[in-house]
Each structure stands twice: as C-alpha cells, then as structure tokens.
C-alpha cells in the first residue's frame, strides 16, 4: 500500500513550482494518499507481458513540407506578457546575486 507523507507532498509542490501553504500541505497530504491508494489497483492487472499504450492513435513522427507561413508578429506575441521591455519579455532575475 502506498503512503505519502507531508514532507513528500512539500517536495512534490516544490518540484511542481507550487508555493503551497501549511494548511494546504495538511489537506493535500491526506487527499493525495487516498487518491494514490485508490489508483494503485492498476498494478493488479498490469503484468510484464502487456505492452504500454501512450497514445490511442498509433502515430510515429508526422512530417510536413517546410514552407513559410504567416505567424504571430512581435507585438501580438507580447500582447499578453505580464511585462515587456524593448520588444522582449521582461522576466525576474534568473541567476542569484552571487552567481
């Protein structure tokens, strides 16, 4: 039986870039545990000899002719940006002070 601790949920939230609150950690730890236990039954019938299916329609790479088509202009692409500067997306600092 799987079991997921509060610390593990905190780790998952960090990996998923979710700054969850302490209250949420309590809530989600309980709920995620129940959900994971209820879905673990897939292991009951998933034997080694069964090939996995990732996609309902068996497709390999789909190619098309490399032709120039109209696309979004710079102004349109930036139209929804939280912040833009000099025709580019403005983002918070990526590197630390010491880097």
């Amino acid at each position: 039986m799987p079991s997921i601790s509060r610390d593990e949920v905190a780790h998952l939230a960090k990996l998923a870039r979710l700054a969850v609150t302490e209250d949420e950690l309590d809530l989600f730890a309980g709920q995620l545990d129940v959900i994971l236990q209820s879905v673990a039954s897939v292991g009951d019938i998933a034997t080694a000899d069964i090939p996995p299916t990732s996609h309902a329609v068996p497709l390999t790479n789909v190619f098309r002719e490399d032709v120039v088509r109209p696309s979004l202009g710079q102004q349109q692409a930036l139209s929804g940006a939280p912040e833009a500067e000099d025709g580019r997306f403005r983002v918070p600092r990526i590197l630390g002070e010491e880097a």
Partner: peptide, 18 residues
C-alpha cells in the same frame, strides 16, 4: 502558480508529478 491555480488543479499536478 499557487495564487492562480485552484485546489483540484494543484492536486492533479502533484499526483502527476508523483
């Protein structure tokens, strides 16, 4: 993401991450 997503979305993102 914490402010913008509701509880069910957060739950599913974390289940998927796990």
């Amino acid at each position: 993401r914490e402010a913008g997503f509701g509880p069910e979305v957060k739950r599913r993102i974390m289940i998927g991450t796990y």
